[in-house]
Simulated scan of single mutants.
Amino acid sequence: MRKVGIIGGTGPEATVDYYQSIIAEYQNRIGSKEDLPELVINSINMYKIFNLLEEDEKSELVDYLVEAIQSLERAGVDFAVLSANTAHIVFEEVEKRVSIPLISMIQAASAKAKELGLQKVGLIGTGFTMASDFYENAFSKNNQEIIVPSKEDQDYIHRKIVDELEQGIVKEETKSRFLKIIRKMVAEQKAEGIILGCTELPLMIKESDLDVPALNTTAIHVNRILDAVLGAGESIDD
């Protein structure tokens, strides 16, 4: 069994969800409640990441994440993951500078969309995620198109993620507005599915709320992590 390292704190609510989901999925796969996976969490500062992105200090962000992953490596993990969509903005740069394998949430989401036969997929997440091209670049390799909401809707989504969801606050009026934005993307932009591109979004939006598939990036990533932990499928790097 391989030991996984998690870069957490980005945000804290999602880190808890990752921890609990990895344990639950591990026990489900092995068919026993009397065993646990081995993992190490390095909880870093989400607000430092946001500040570095706002100041366009991506090289400093890469340094920050590389240092955090190297700390996990010294703790003896076999591979590591970033438990946040936004941090994947610099995933490729970070991956080049660390010695242990990393499992990309974005690549896993693209593979899931391909499995579901989705070609045109809507993306909601932080403003940084929606304004960047890292999702678009990954999905284009599978001939998939990424679409995002209007700038006004992006600003609203980002503000509510930072001010509410990252604090563990779920408001019904916020959920209602998010669902309205998603339905507009489906009706007007012909989105065939929606990526919940912030790991706090599943705290509020469930697949049953939508008429199209919802790609829960936390759940998708956790499944890929467990494949690696248990040595299922291909190598960690694939």
Rank of each mutant, 00 (worst) to 15 (best):
I220T: 08
E207G: 15
I7K: 09
K206F: 14
E166M: 07
F178K: 12
G9A: 10
A138C: 05
F139R: 00
Q154N: 06
T15G: 11
G197V: 02
I195Y: 05
K96P: 03
Y135V: 02
M204T: 07
V170K: 15
Q107W: 01
S104N: 13
H158T: 11
G193S: 06
R183K: 12
L230Q: 08
G8N: 10
A84Q: 09
M130A: 10
E92M: 00
M130K: 09
V66L: 02
Q107N: 04
G31A: 08
G168I: 06
I182P: 06
D163P: 04
L118F: 12
F50V: 15
E60C: 03
S43P: 09
R29Y: 09
S132Y: 04
D17F: 14
V94W: 03
R183L: 01
D63R: 09
K3M: 15
L201T: 08
E173Q: 07
K206A: 15
N51T: 05
Q70A: 01
A187H: 08
T129S: 13
P149S: 10
I161W: 09
E173P: 00
R224I: 02
L226Y: 14
D63P: 03
S110V: 04
V222I: 12
S43W: 06
E92S: 05
M1N: 06
A108I: 08
R97C: 06
S83L: 08
D35G: 08
D238T: 04
T199D: 12
N45Q: 13
A87V: 11
I22M: 12
P149D: 08
L165Y: 13
L102W: 11
T218W: 00
K171L: 15
A214K: 09
I6C: 07
G117Q: 02
L215V: 04
E57L: 14
V121G: 02
F139Q: 01
K114L: 05
G9H: 10
N223C: 13
G11R: 03
M185V: 10
V148P: 02
